[in-house]
């Protein structure tokens, strides 16, 4: 049993690299996910994750499978969509969710087309679902750097971010922090998606961000525990997913997200604030 858990990581460098990458991502993405969920922006994060694809694909067309080129392209595209969706919602009849759905489809189609112009179907799979088991030095540095920046940013912006979530007008009227807080939040979210893209690909990048965050909602009520539990769930899913993929021969990215998904479903049923407890409480009231 102990060997089944530690063996793969002791024996294989690629497993260790995958573990380090995923744990770095588990530190930074879930806190951002918690705020995205609380601000009802989970759909927005999904659209931004897709928007990264054409940007990264252009980087790929220019420089091949180079982490810096794909990261730069993804960052530009992600920020453009984050700002663009807000702009479209403010200045046209379309509501933000509709404009996000449009961006999402457009980006996916454009990205797949761009990758297929030059790459093989293996490259395409890499783009769509990531390659946790083939994280290079560049990618590991990126994941670590993003985790560092994210945690540092959270330490600085935590208070204005909370105020912005609870009462945006209050923050807007009491200073310049409002726009700065909102824009830096979007920027950090995009950073995390670009990092997650390396490990999990476009289609699953939001997985370690949103699933742990929504699962944590079934366990905790206050913000600080929510963030802590989300991080723990993400880290546990990473380890469980990697082991699952190693022992059962499953694709690693999907195995990690499936683990997180399983925890989400279990939390929904058995969590302290989940469905079963809720049903039980309702039963008590009925007597």
């Amino acid at each position: 049993m102990i060997d089944a858990v530690f063996g793969p990581f002791v024996e294989f460098a690629f497993m260790r690299r995958a573990l380090v990458g995923c744990l770095a991502l588990s530190l930074s993405a879930p806190p951002i996910g918690v705020f995205l969920v609380l601000r009802r922006m989970s759909l927005m994060s999904d659209a931004m994750a897709h928007a990264i694809l054409p940007g990264a694909a252009i980087g790929f067309l220019v420089a091949g499978l180079s982490v810096p080129a794909m990261t730069a392209g993804g960052l530009v595209a992600g920020v453009a969509v984050a700002l663009g969706a807000g702009f479209v919602a403010r200045h046209t009849v379309l509501r933000e969710d509709a404009s996000l759905a449009a961006f999402y489809l457009l980006s996916l189609a454009a990205g797949v087309t761009l990758v297929s112009m030059r790459g093989s179907s293996v490259d395409l799979l890499h783009f769509l679902f990531g390659s946790v088991l083939a994280l290079g030095d560049d990618a590991l540095v990126l994941l670590g750097a993003v985790a560092t920046v994210t945690l540092g940013w959270l330490a600085v912006a935590y208070r204005p971010l909370v105020i912005e979530c609870v009462d945006p007008l209050f923050l807007r009227l009491s200073g310049r922090a409002s726009a700065l807080t909102h824009l830096s939040f979007l920027a950090v979210a995009v950073l995390n998606l670009v990092a997650a893209f390396q490990a999990l690909g476009t289609l699953l990048a939001v997985g370690l961000m949103i699933l742990p965050a929504v699962a944590a909602r079934f366990w905790a009520r206050d913000l600080a525990p929510l963030i802590g539990i989300a991080i723990l769930i993400a880290a546990f899913s990473s380890v469980a997913g990697l082991l699952l993929s190693y022992h059962a021969g499953l694709p690693s990215g999907p195995a990690i997200i499936l683990s997180a998904g399983a925890i989400y479903l279990l939390s929904m049923l058995f969590g302290r604030r989940g469905a079963l407890i809720h049903a039980q409480a309702a039963g008590h009231l009925r007597g």
């Binding site: 979530c165 009462d167 206050d222």
Partner: peptide, 8 residues
């Protein structure tokens, strides 16, 4: 007030 009362 644009309060999001569901925020923890």
């Amino acid at each position: 007030a644009e309060i999001d009362a569901s925020f923890p």
